[in-house]
Simulated scan of single mutants.
Amino acid sequence: MRMGTLLWRFGPGWRMISSAVLGGGIGPREWVLNAQVDKDYARTDPVEHLIEMGPGGPGVGMLTAAMVEHHTRAADGGVEVVATVGLGVPTWAAAPPGAVSEEAGRRPGTINIIVAVPVALCDAALVNAVMTVTEAKTQALIEAGFPCTGTASDAVCVAVREEGPQEPFGGPRSEWGARIARAVHRAVLDGALGWRGRAAGTARL
Rank of each mutant, 00 (worst) to 15 (best):
D154M: 07
A99K: 10
G145S: 06
V130A: 14
R204M: 13
I114D: 12
L22D: 06
V82I: 15
A74G: 05
Q36R: 12
D154Y: 07
G23Q: 05
G23F: 03
R73N: 09
Q166M: 14
K137M: 02
V32F: 02
L126R: 09
I26H: 11
L87Y: 03
H49Q: 08
G194K: 13
D123A: 15
A83E: 05
G145E: 05
G98A: 03
T138W: 00
V85N: 09
V68D: 02
P58E: 02
G56A: 00
G150N: 01
V79M: 06
G77H: 13
A42L: 11
T44H: 14
A75V: 11
E69P: 07
D190T: 14
L121Q: 07
Y41S: 09
L33N: 06
G197E: 14
P172E: 12
W8S: 11
R15L: 13
V82Y: 09
R204H: 10
C157Y: 06
V160M: 00
L7A: 04
W92D: 04
E163Q: 15
V68C: 01
A152Y: 04
K39D: 10
R107E: 08
W14K: 04
F146M: 07
A93D: 05
E162Q: 15
L141E: 02
E163Y: 12
A181E: 07
T202N: 10
G164N: 02
E69Q: 15
M16W: 08
A183H: 05
P97G: 00
G150L: 03
S18C: 03
T134R: 13
R198Y: 11
R161M: 11
I113R: 02
G191E: 00
A144Y: 01
T84Q: 08
V158I: 01
G61C: 02
A178T: 11
V119H: 07
L33E: 02
P28I: 01
A203S: 08
N34T: 15
L33F: 09
D38H: 12
R161W: 03
V60F: 01
M16K: 04
R182G: 05
V133R: 06
M16A: 15
I26S: 08
A187K: 00
N128C: 09
A125Y: 06
G59N: 05
A136L: 03
A66C: 04
A187N: 00
V37L: 00
